[in-house]
Amino acid sequence: MNIFRLAGDMMHLFSIIVLLLKINATRSCRGVSLKTQELYAIVFVCRYLDLFTSFISLYNTTMKLIFLLSTFTIIYWMRFHKVIRVTYDREQDTFRYQFLILPCFLLALVLNNEFSAMEVLWTFSIYLEAVAILPQLVLLQRTNNIDNLTGNYVFLLGSYRALYILNWIYRFMTEPNYRQYLVWISGIVQTIVYIDFFYYYIRSWRNNEKLSLPA
């Protein structure tokens, strides 16, 4: 565990806390994409199947359980909470995510390190995570007034990805047998997806303006 990895994980954790607090405090999920949350739920379920088969550390297990539990909580609120579900931007959140899920799964069947159910699902989760933010970014583009917390949520998630790249560079330089090409390429793609958002986020912050993304 290096400082970049820990910082990345903390950004990931903060992003989810920000989202939970926002929805819970305002009783509103306006601007939040249910599709992205459901994609993350699929990502976490497929990747963390090893909760049942191997124990890495207490830290690892705890974080996995937090990510799973928090994502399912958000989905539950957005779908079923009697106050919150009314605030969901159903008409705007129309990204057809089956067009992400199917290609990622097919790619995982072909490009993987080992053709076993666990490994294919793990690889699928890596590919799917790279594009899971897309419905959220499209929704933000359609939302005129992006509230600070939703903007911060996406910014923290993007920071988590950027820090993971630094973590990989550090590990590559310090661990002799460490390499994971599929993860690196997916992670770089995932970070590139955020670059446009980062540009407008930082610009709005510097100019003290409300964040809005051009359509």
Partner: peptide
């Protein structure tokens, strides 16, 4: 503690 194929990452 950590494996070297990245499966220990979150």
């Amino acid at each position: 503690e950590e494996s070297d194929d990245g499966h220990d990452e979150l």
